[in-house]
Simulated scan of single mutants.
Amino acid sequence: MLSIVVPCYNEEESLPFFLKAVEQRSREITHSIEYIFVNDGSTDATLTVLKEFHHQLPKKVRFISFSRNFGKEAALYAGLQAAKGDLVTVMDADLQDPPELLPKMIQMIENSDIDCVGTRRSDRQGEPPVRSFFARLFYKVINKYGDTEMIDGARDFRLMTRQMVDAILDVTEYNRFSKGIFSWVGFKTEYLSYENRERVAGETTWSFWSLFKYSIDGLINFSDAPLTIASFVGAFSCVGAGIALIFIVLRALIFGDPTSGWPSLVSVILFVGGLQLLCLGIIGKYIGKIFLETKNRPIYIIKETEKDLLDKKL
């Protein structure tokens, strides 16, 4: 069986196009297919559309609906937990992940000893230049200072064996960054490249700010480089302040000048204070992640599934 996990947040316009496109490609796939749609607290009619899908294809379409919006990472984890297939793939509902690649991905994984076939965009055509610049910068930084290699342009769209999925499910941390987890668990992975695609319908919920925060979470989750940088900044500031102090004392002893220079002194104090606050902010970010982990809160809360519809009928 092939399980297709689809996180959904306000995707009522895209979902009909998605199901139609994948169903057309399913004729080229010899495996039986199950769809697992995860409604991540959508505020539109996404859940209504998913219920209609289940009525149309009751043996193939399953859905999970959260009690509120927990984020895409939680939706991915819930979908992987619910998947029953020997092969599992993760796809976005907006058709930016080409369904026509699925048959080739299955062929690759069955005709070799690899555990995962990932996909990556060969270009960023249609993406705002500022977003592309910072995306490339993120991958350069995380690969240089992080402990886990991440492929530039890699998507969450990938086909995985059951063994790899079980390994990912064993990573039960609350603060999740799936791109990093996919790489961290290991397993042999090959990548397929394709040209960037625009959404088939609807609007993206990923703003520049949300992507920036997501990248910061990824950097913190898979690297302690910010803490190291904070330590070096603190040490450099301390050494610089010591040199400046020696210079001021020698200048006062040789030339006098006991009172002048207070503007520069204030500037130095403000600069050093800013560095201290920056370092404290970095440390606080790590402490905040630890705080959330120690609470042991559930990654998500389910409000409704397709089984509830059956119970109501009974």
Rank of each mutant, 00 (worst) to 15 (best):
K213A: 03
Y9V: 07
G71H: 08
L275V: 10
D92N: 15
G288H: 13
E304V: 07
Y35L: 04
T305F: 09
F255V: 00
L309P: 08
L15D: 02
R124V: 05
V266P: 01
C116I: 04
L278S: 13
D156I: 11
H31K: 14
V88A: 03
D147V: 06
L2A: 01
D113H: 14
L80N: 04
P298N: 12
E203T: 15
N221D: 10
L19S: 05
G186Q: 04
R251V: 00
E293T: 09
E198R: 14
D217W: 02
R176Y: 14
S237N: 11
G118S: 05
Q24W: 07
T30S: 13
C8H: 03
T46Y: 03
K84L: 04
F17P: 02
F37T: 04
A82M: 07
N221E: 12
D147K: 08
N69L: 01
A78R: 12
E306C: 13
L277Q: 12
A83V: 05
L76R: 03
F271T: 09
W206Q: 09
S260T: 11
R120G: 06
L270E: 01
Y139A: 02
L15Q: 01
K104H: 10
A241K: 03
G273D: 08
W262C: 05
F66H: 01
G126T: 08
F66E: 02
F177A: 14
R62V: 02
L270G: 00
T204I: 06
R120L: 13
I269P: 00
I109Q: 02
K285V: 09
A45G: 00
E73P: 10
T48Q: 09
A83R: 09
D166C: 02
P103C: 06
D40F: 01
G126F: 08
S26D: 00
V141Y: 01
R131L: 15
S264A: 04
S210Y: 03
L95A: 08
S267K: 09
I283L: 11
Y35N: 04
S207G: 07
R121W: 10
T119P: 05
Y194L: 12
L277K: 14
K140S: 04
F271S: 09
A83S: 15
R155Y: 00
A21R: 06
P7V: 06
V90I: 15
F133N: 13
C279G: 14
I36F: 02
K72H: 11
D166R: 10
R68I: 03
I254P: 00
M91V: 14
V268E: 00
Q81F: 03
V61N: 10
A225Y: 06
I283Y: 08
L95D: 11
T305M: 14
K313V: 06
I216N: 10
R162T: 02
N39P: 07
Q125H: 08
C116W: 00
